[in-house]
Nucleic acid binder design. Structure first.
Lengths: 345, 345
DNA sequence: AATTAGCACTCGAACGGGTAGAGTGCTAAA
DNA sequence: TTTAGCACTCTACCCGTTCGAGTGCTAATT
């Protein structure tokens, strides 16, 4: 599929991409010639660049400017030319420390990781926790919250806690509540929330004929609590990093589109969707990303999991001109870290 | 203190402010003359405006431009000249509906309100929930979260739920846990979280001499859970509205400062701090606000409460040139709404 | 056959002058 | 006290010029 380049072409492409990542300016033949130690003259480079332009890897913003990489150029770079710059020991330690230390719930873990990742990368970091619903239940408890409200607390496999208030007028005594709790627990443990929901609906059909008032109550409360599906959470840290990118500072329209996107949970979810199920890094460059109307950003994301279950994804959002050689190892490491920290919860 | 203006001066000031709020452009004498139905000629208006400039209510960005109001000008306008534009019935209904409907926890209530308020006002809306710690406890429960973690769930007066995971290696049985729960509950009910903390520390001192193992455990767990103070929450909705303001679209530096501020919880807390204790609307104009380095924004905020307890504040953040006549009633109504909705939780 | 020097060409950014227009302040008349 | 009149000021905008970076092409060189 992708046309393969000869060595020289590849090297020039690599240098152009890397220079452009660094400067955000079109790259000229002279610059590349210098970077190669003047093994080839600017004129030769020009010929090579003209070829690269024909192949679709480079383009010119206008006739008398240098070249900038196209989406395809970046794609080729990432697929074949990228030299990963692994994290420094100190960075790994920092991430590890911050992620583990002084945080209690699994929610805190991902938030801390996100914050730090955005700081280290100087890009906006997004974490999606979408798969509460894939985690098995460890326990369910019902607590009285007020005279007409009951609090259902669900502890999931691995540190996630969900709670929900249910309206409930029939004055249940503490003992009854405990009994109901017990019923629900018996049904629930080991199931996921959606599975529990289905089970409750089934039981309700059977139960109609039966007599146990409390069991009926248990089913009713359970079905109320699970009526709406479990929402995912989206945390975004370091949005303001977007402002530091010259391409967005100069083009206000692009900036607006991006910052608007950050306000819409659904858009963010779409952007990171591809990474959800996979443990491998997903990179979507510019118009490759699944959201129409955001052709100017790249997303580098990876799923993270808890035991066998995919739990969500973490990713960076920045300009197409991201420093992939650094950003990819960063995201990768953080995702692995999350997975391993969460495993022991 | 504040110099009082004669009728004409006040009217001109009012018209200048209102025109400037609308257009974001310096206002000329001709415009004002027209707005007054040409009762006075531009030349006269110029004299009046020159007076207003001397008094410090207006200023000129440069010699041959119209006038724009100073901070003091806005302050005078808000204190003495503002004509409130009350909300339409439909808006009140909408706010009421969205705030009450389909939400369960008190947290949801404020978030929904915030979102809607930002939409109605077209400004960024901030809600602070800082006073969990002022709410009395209704109940405390301990649940086993995993083999080495216990989940403490605290239900506060009025729909707020706090939970925290505590590391705990000594394998406690369910019965023991229940008993400990009971101990804590006895101590806790009716106290606020900080009060409970103090009480636990006191009891610990006394308890040292005594013998009850479970009671000691209860105190230990309680003190662990309450070690760090209760954090407040800050929700920001509609940040992107800032981008629609011409003054920020044109001045990138200002924009950056504001969006950076949104990333720092502490800055936001400072901005809304004055509103916390008070039920009355607080307006801080430009450099009046307590945060250095944000002289270009105004904050219109009000506290909201639950029963007798101040719970937090809700406010709008926008350019100095906000439409106060509309924004003030909006915030006021929403804050009252929050207070009344939360009261019945 | 590949490379390169040389050169004409193109385009954008930066600079400067000139103009139009909005708005002012001042003065003198009403 | 108000206002008409007028000179003045300043900005925004347009336009032409220049400068420089970078190109493509061609012909000479290796």
């Amino acid at each position: 599929m992708t046309p393969t380049l000869d060595d020289r072409g590849a090297q020039v492409l690599r240098l152009v991409v890397e220079d452009y990542i660094e400067t955000a300016e079109p790259v000229g033949s002279r610059t590349i010639s210098k970077k190669m130690g003047q093994v080839l003259s600017p004129a030769t480079i020009r010929n090579i660049m003209a070829d690269l332009e024909e192949t679709g890897y480079l383009c010119q913003p206008h006739t008398s400017a240098g070249r900038i990489p196209t989406g395809a150029g970046f794609r080729y770079y990432i697929n074949y030319l990228l030299a990963r710059r692994e994290l420094a020991r100190s960075e790994r330690d920092l991430l590890q420390k911050v992620t583990v230390e002084g945080v209690s719930g699994a929610d805190d873990v991902v938030r801390h990781a996100s914050r730090l990742l955005s700081n280290l990368s100087r890009h906006a970091c997004v974490v999606v926790v979408s798969r509460y619903s894939h985690q098995a239940l460890r326990s369910i408890s019902l607590l009285r919250a007020s005279s007409d409200r009951i609090l259902l607390v669900a502890v999931l496999q691995g540190g996630w806690v969900q709670h929900r208030l249910i309206e409930e007028d029939a004055g249940l005594t503490t003992e009854e509540l405990e009994k109901i709790s017990g019923y629900l627990n018996e049904m629930a443990v080991g199931l996921t929330l959606p599975q529990l929901r289905v089970r409750i609906l089934n039981e309700m059909r059977k139960e109609k004929a039966r007599y146990d008032r409390l069991m009926r109550k248990a089913l009713l409360l359970g079905s109320k609590a699970l009526a709406d599906s479990v929402p995912g959470e989206v945390y975004i840290e370091g949005r303001a990093n977007i402002l530091e990118q010259p391409e967005f500072a100069e083009d206000f329209q692009k900036l607006k589109r991006i910052l608007h996107a950050f306000e819409e949970k659904s858009v963010i979810l779409q952007l990171l969707d591809a990474a959800l199920e996979s443990d491998a890094i997903q990179v979507s460059i510019g118009s490759e990303n699944p959201v129409e109307g955001l052709p100017d950003i790249s997303v580098v994301a990876s799923g993270y999991h808890q035991g066998e279950t995919a739990m969500g994804s973490i990713g960076l959002i920045g300009p197409i001109r991201m420093d992939y050689s650094r950003v990819i190892p960063l995201v990768e490491y953080t995702a692995h870290l999350l997975s391993s920290v969460l495993e022991h919860r």
